[in-house]
Write a protein that binds this DNA or RNA. Structure first.
Lengths: 339, 339
DNA sequence: ATGAAAGCGCTAACAA
DNA sequence: TTGTTAGCGCTTTCAT
C-alpha cells in the first residue's frame, strides 16, 4: 500500500496533524519534532496524495492551459504555442504547480473540455493562449468568474481581465518605421485573418507610422484566396511598393516565395519585415528581418500572473506589456538615400 | 457552495449511494429512481468532484504527456509535438480523460515533474512522446512499473513495453527506393543526432535498399558543425551524388539551402527526399518530397493504447506499427533512364 | 432495489 | 506546541 500521513505519524510517534503541519513548515511545530517527522517521512518515502489535499483544501495546484482550436490559425502549425507551453511548464515546475491541457477540434469540444476541468475542480485557473474576437471560451470564463489570464489583447472586458500582451500597435508602427528608416516610402501591409485582434492593431500601427511620415497608407492586403493574389498582384503593379509589412513570419515566407515566382527579388526589389521571430525566420535565405515579440517572456509572465492571482485574488487586475524589438536580418534593403 | 452528492440525494429523496450508483448507471438501480435522480442532478446542476472521486477510486482519469526536454532536438521547434498533443487531446476528450503535461528544461527537472505527477497520484499513466537511447525518464517509468506507452522505438525492454511506432527501417528503405525508382544511383544519407534511434534505423533502411540494388552505400553524413559541412562538401565533390535521403524535413530545408548556395539546383542537380511531411515541407519551393509518417495516427493510437491498458492491464503488451507513405512533391527528379 | 455507514488521505478548528 | 476529531465529496460494503 501507499504510505499515508498516518503511517508517518505512527512512525514519528506524533499526531497526523503534526505531520500535516510539518509538511507546510508551520511555525506552530517545534524544530525538533519537525526533524523527527521529516526523518519518518524520508524513511517511509512519503509523498502527500494530491487528491486528498485537493479535497481538503478545495484547491488543486494546477492550471489549465487552453490551446486554440485547430481551425483558427492551426496551432499545430504554429511553433509559438509549444514554446509557450514549455515556458509555462518551467514556471510551474518551479512553483510546484501542474499543467492540465485543454484542446479541442471544435469550439464546442474545447468549451466542454474547459467546463469539465473547471466544474470538476481539476484546475484553479486558466491561461488562455490566444486571443480572438468574440471568443465563446473567454465569454464562458468571464461569466463564470473563473480565474484566467489571457495571452493577447482582450476585445472586451478589458478592465476586468488579467492579460499579457505586447503593445501590438507599437509593434506594427516600429516595423513600419524600420522600413521608413531604411529609406522606403511605398509600403504595403499584408495581414492574416482579421478576426485576430493582433492583426488589426498591427495594421493600425502601420498606418500611424505612415501618417506621421506623411506617406500613403494602403489598405490591408490578404494572401489566402486566389482573389487575394490577384488583389496583391494589382497592388504591386499599380503602386510599386519597395517594402511590405507582413503580419507573420510564416506568411512572410509565402510572400517571399510568391514574389520570387514573379521574378521580384527580396530584398533587392521588395523588402519584407514581419513579426514573431519564429523558427521560420531563419529557415532559408534571405533570413527574415522580423519583430521579436518575446513569446517566452509572454508565456512566463502569464504563468506567473495567474499563479500570483490565485494566491492573492485581491490583487488589482493588472496587465503586463512585454517589449519587442526588431531583429535585423536579410529581407530589408537599405535604399539609396540620394537616389 | 458547490452542489454535492448529498444535495442531489436530498433533492431526489434518496441516499447518496443511490446517487453515486446512478452516476455510473449501475444496473442495481431501477429506471424510475434513476430518472428521478437525474432530474435532481439536472435541476441543481450537479457535477461530481474529481478529487473526491479520485480519492475514493484511487484513479484519476488523467494521463500525463511527457515532452522531450528542450535540449534534444528542441521540441519548441518541432511542430510534430503540438500536433501529437492535439490529437491526444481529441482522444482524451472523447473518452473523458484529462491531460497533464510534463515538461522541463533539463532531464532532472523533467524527471522531477514526472515523479511528482506519479507519486502524488495525479495521473494513471503516461505517454512518452519521444524515444531516446538511455533515457532516464523511461528508465524511471520502467523501474517504477508505471504504466506508459512510448511513441517511437524502445532501445531496451522491447518486449515489456507498450509502444507505437512506424517501421522506421522500412521507412528509410522506401525513401531510398523512391530515389532508386527515379533512376538515381549515387545516393547519400544525411542524419540527425545519432542518439535518436529513428535516425539509426532509417539509415539502416537506406543501406538495405542500396545493398539490395547493388549500389554503393555511403556513411551517414551530419549537418551541424563546420566540420560536418566540410565533410559534406567533400562527399559531394568526390561522389557526385544525384540523390540524398535526409532524416527530417527541416534538415532538408537546410540542405536545400546549402546546396543552392553552392549553386547546385534542387532537384535538377541533386534530388532530396526527407521524412515527416511536416509544415516545413510546403513552405517554399521546391516543395519537399517526403515520407509521411502519420504523426496524428501515432498520437491517436498512443492515447487509445494507454487508455485501453489502464482499463485492462491484463492485455498483452502490444505494439502498434503505423504505416507510412511517400508524398511526391518537387525535390526528386526523374532521371533520364537512357542517359 | 435501496440505505447506512465506513473509509479514501489530508486539513484545520478546537481542545488541551 | 501538540493532539483529537470532524469534515472535504465520493464509493462501496454490508444490511435490509
Amino acid at each position: 500500500m501507499t504510505v499515508t500521513i498516518k503511517d508517518v505519524a505512527k512512525e514519528a510517534g506524533v499526531a497526523t496533524s503534526t505531520v500535516s503541519r510539518t509538511l507546510k513548515d508551520s511555525p506552530l511545530i517545534s524544530e525538533t519534532t519537525k526533524i523527527k517527522v521529516r526523518a519518518a517521512m524520508a524513511k517511509l518515502g512519503y509523498t502527500p496524495n494530491f487528491a486528498a489535499q485537493n479535497l481538503a483544501n478545495k484547491s488543486t495546484r494546477t492550471i489549465g492551459v487552453i490551446l486554440p482550436v485547430a481551425t483558427m490559425g492551426n496551432p499545430a502549425q504554429n511553433p509559438l504555442f509549444l514554446e509557450m507551453i514549455q515556458e509555462i511548464g518551467v514556471v510551474c515546475n518551479e512553483k510546484k504547480y501542474m499543467i492540465s491541457l485543454a484542446t479541442g477540434k471544435t469550439l464546442d469540444e474545447l468549451k466542454d473540455s474547459v467546463r469539465l476541468m473547471h466544474q470538476r475542480k481539476l484546475v484553479d485557473g486558466f491561461i488562455l493562449l490566444y486571443s480572438e474576437a468574440n471568443d465563446p471560451i473567454r465569454k464562458f470564463l468571464h461569466e463564470g468568474k473563473i480565474p484566467y489570464v489571457l495571452v493577447g489583447k482582450p476585445d472586451i472586458y478589458e478592465n476586468e481581465t488579467l492579460y499579457i500582451d505586447n503593445d501590438n500597435r507599437l509593434t506594427g508602427k516600429n516595423a513600419t518605421e524600420w522600413l521608413l528608416q531604411n529609406g522606403h516610402t511605398q509600403i504595403g501591409y499584408i495581414g492574416l485573418t482579421p478576426s485576430q485582434l493582433v492583426d488589426k492593431l498591427r495594421y493600425e500601427g502601420y498606418r500611424d507610422a505612415l501618417l506621421e511620415a506623411d506617406l500613403e497608407v494602403f489598405p490591408e492586403l490578404s494572401f489566402e484566396t486566389s482573389a487575394d493574389f490577384e488583389g496583391f498582384q494589382t497592388f504591386i503593379t499599380e503602386n510599386k511598393p519597395t517594402g511590405l509589412v507582413v503580419a507573420d513570419d510564416r506568411l512572410a515566407l509565402q510572400v517571399r516565395e510568391y514574389l520570387q515566382q514573379q521574378h521580384l527579388r527580396v530584398p533587392e526589389d521588395i523588402s519584407l519585415i514581419s513579426f514573431n521571430n519564429s523558427v521560420f525566420a531563419t529557415l532559408s535565405h534571405p533570413f527574415l528581418t522580423t519583430v521579436d515579440i518575446h513569446v517566452k517572456e509572454l508565456a512566463k509572465q502569464a504563468a506567473m500572473l495567474i499563479i500570483h492571482y490565485l494566491q492573492e485574488p485581491e490583487t488589482l487586475m493588472s496587465k503586463v506589456i512585454v517589449p519587442h524589438e526588431v531583429v535585423e536580418r536579410e529581407t530589408v534593403k537599405k535604399m539609396n538615400q540620394n537616389a
